[in-house]
Design a protein around this nucleic acid. Sequence first.
DNA 1: GGGATTTGCCTATAGCTTGTAGGTAGCTGC
DNA 2: GCAGCTACCTACAAGCTATAGGCAAATCCC
Lengths: 189, 189
Amino acid sequence: MARVGLTAERLARAGAELADEVGFDQVTVSALARRFDVKVASLYSHVKSSQDLRTRIALLALEEMADRGAAALAGRAGKDALAALANVYRDYAREHPGRYAAARLRLDPEAAAASAGGRHAHMTRAILRGYDLTEPDQTHAVRLLGSVFHGYVSLELGGGFDHSAPDSEETWTRILDALDALLRSWPAA
Amino acid sequence: MARVGLTAERLARAGAELADEVGFDQVTVSALARRFDVKVASLYSHVKSSQDLRTRIALLALEEMADRGAAALAGRAGKDALAALANVYRDYAREHPGRYAAARLRLDPEAAAASAGGRHAHMTRAILRGYDLTEPDQTHAVRLLGSVFHGYVSLELGGGFDHSAPDSEETWTRILDALDALLRSWPAA
DNA sequence: GGGATTTGCCTATAGCTTGTAGGTAGCTGC
DNA sequence: GCAGCTACCTACAAGCTATAGGCAAATCCC
């Protein structure tokens, strides 16, 4: 009875890979067991449920994205920082569509609190230090940026911009320009 | 053997209701059969597969949203039109979260072509007639608006803005103001 | 080193879901 | 009123989630 060395950690990582290969909603306990060449029931010693597995993958993805974001923001400010963080999200989503989908999973409050969600919000606020916004406008802007990043990436990943000109790359650049301009002259209430 | 009067149409409608009640990804052929008090296999005469059912719900939702959008846009222009269409999406998503999720389903090209997707793009372009944008900026703007609408609604629905001030209502208003301002002074390339 | 304990993976089982094949009862048209 | 179509049925196969209980490998401890 050879021991493979399963842990919740390894399962989450393998689940993340699986998600990128076959899509997040195709990640099942069964598929993961097959990948480790192990019986399904064995996984339940490490993971509470299918939902628990998904949550772990989501937390992993959020953490990875936050790490990349932090690295990208280091030493940058203003529009430079804006573009850097935006590209982190977009590139991550294109490299790891399954993980990105996982990161969009609705977490229960407890998991959300333990997640890297706070780091993400913090990074967006850091960007806004390069612009002249005070509360509550800063929060409005944080939410706008979050919406655009997530919305664009999600539509692009869904193939929404595939078959029409101009190409997505150009639009992305121009949207970042537009956001920069908007933040520099944010309209008063 | 009482006949219930199942049709693909009725199944899609009931599926949409079910989605709003329990979430789109909880919509199963089995659950729908229970709802009609009918055996599961009976549904397969009307619907090719679980995927087919989901697609029909998605098409229904896209159509409903497009109808609402068209009604809201009638007689409006400029910022008025912008806010009207934006609110259609947001309100629809809040009234019908399951249907909204369905509308985000990735459709195969054939289904996409037969969907109301074209009407949605057309409506967004109609709004931009109130602003001074020429191609390719108009397309960039269409994509930006789509991203913001979808992104914001999606984050809001996910509870992202629930536990922090200011409330989502205010942010939404200010984002629409900001988009209007941005479209009026869209930065040159 | 060897017994006790913990831990990792196992078999077995039950319930739920998707999907197919083939049968039967009810409606429709003539 | 009966022929034929259609709607719904039973039966079944296969896959996924989840739990219970068992055996063996690793680890602890003297």
